[in-house]
């Protein structure tokens, strides 16, 4: 890889696979035992993007959009059907040793830790597998211990750890070799809010300290808003947005959300002139107003009514994205 070149380059990647279909019921089972009908699923259909060193990019899309498939192609687990993929200057599917030593894949739903033994045993095994020198191993483990607060978790059998504790250890096991590229597939899935926040902080801090390039998928928008300035959205295997999270809201949701608390009730008709009334309670009202007129409408409102409090926000990112997918489905 030449300096200045993107760390990850995906050029017109396609990945199709064959699935067999089965009609329901016993007869269907019997028929498909002898004769299988196959169709091709376009898991990833002609997408291109690239990541610069040190970027954290959120990779979004509904279930089955092709996120995991793309991560698997990038990490070398799947062979691309067409297109070119390069990570750190390597072709991932060759799974060369020098490539594998510089990347990591964390899957929130799968474990690499040895179930019946303490996580420390998996760490030691990975030390040997990745040929990590003693002093480097000690330093990295001490750092991960500090950031993830592993402490006593390392010496407890993995099967006795809670989901969140296990995820911390999974991350540590996946990062001992100090990979330069991290593929994180739903790293916070199923965790409680506090633990999610901790994992997020860790990912951000790890990126700051080591300048690692991170591609992250998550269903929790809080992960994405906290970590990623840039998002890539795919839907049905096609790329539908690649750019700053900020402009995503501006571009696809042409309104802002005004939440107002009044001192005395205001008639609904008055508010309808200012914007779209989403929620109307005695003293608390939520309005959608056109983005470019936000300031003007807010001023009008303050002039016309007795306002206790007002907030102006972008619509929640979940809604923005849901709108995009709805539009894509419709059109």
């Amino acid at each position: 890889m030449h300096p200045g070149e993107p760390v990850i380059q995906v050029d017109r990647l396609k990945r199709y696979y064959r699935v067999h279909h089965r009609r329901p019921g016993m007869w269907g089972a019997l028929v498909s035992f002898f004769h299988r009908e196959y169709t091709y699923v376009r898991a990833v259909d002609d997408i291109s993007f690239s990541l610069e060193a040190g970027e954290i990019v959120g990779f979004l899309g509904p279930n089955g959009a092709g996120k995991t498939t793309t991560l698997k192609v990038l990490s070398g687990l799947l062979y691309p059907t067409a297109g070119r993929v390069s990570v750190l200057g390597f072709e991932p599917f060759r799974r060369e040793k020098d490539f594998l030593k510089q990347i990591t894949l964390v899957m929130g739903q799968k474990n690499q830790l040895i179930w019946d033994l303490p996580a420390a045993d998996t760490f030691l095994l990975n030390k040997e597998i990745y040929e990590i020198p003693d002093d480097e191993y000690r330093a990295t483990l001490a750092e991960l211990d500090e950031l993830l607060e592993l402490g006593p978790l390392m010496t407890k059998q993995v099967r006795k750890l809670s989901l969140g504790e296990r995820m911390k250890c999974e991350l540590a096991a996946a990062l001992l070799h100090r990979p330069r590229v991290l593929f994180l597939d739903e790293p916070t899935i199923g965790l409680d809010v506090t633990m999610q926040a901790k994992i997020r902080e860790f990912i951000a801090e790890y990126n700051r300290r080591h300048g690692a390039t991170i591609l992250l998928t998550s269903h929790y928008m809080a992960d994405v808003t906290a970590l990623c300035e840039r998002v890539i959205i795919i839907h049905h295997g096609r790329l539908i947005y690649d750019g700053p999270l900020q402009t995503l809201a501006e571009r696809t949701a042409p309104y802002k959300v005004l939440t107002i608390t009044f001192r005395s009730p205001v008639p609904r008709e008055v508010l309808q002139n200012l914007g779209h009334v989403v929620q109307y309670e005695a003293l608390r009202v939520t309005l959608h107003v056109p983005r470019e007129e936000t300031a003007k409408r807010a001023a009008q409102l303050l002039a016309q009514a007795q306002v206790e409090d007002v907030t102006i926000e972008d619509p929640p990112i979940e809604e923005v994205i849901a709108t995009i997918f709805r539009e894509k489905e419709a059109g």
Binding site: K72, L77, R95, L100, M107, K110, N111, I129
Partner: peptide, 10 residues
Amino acid sequence: GTLDFVLLKP
């Protein structure tokens, strides 16, 4: 699907 972890080791 944990074979993925095996395949990604150097």
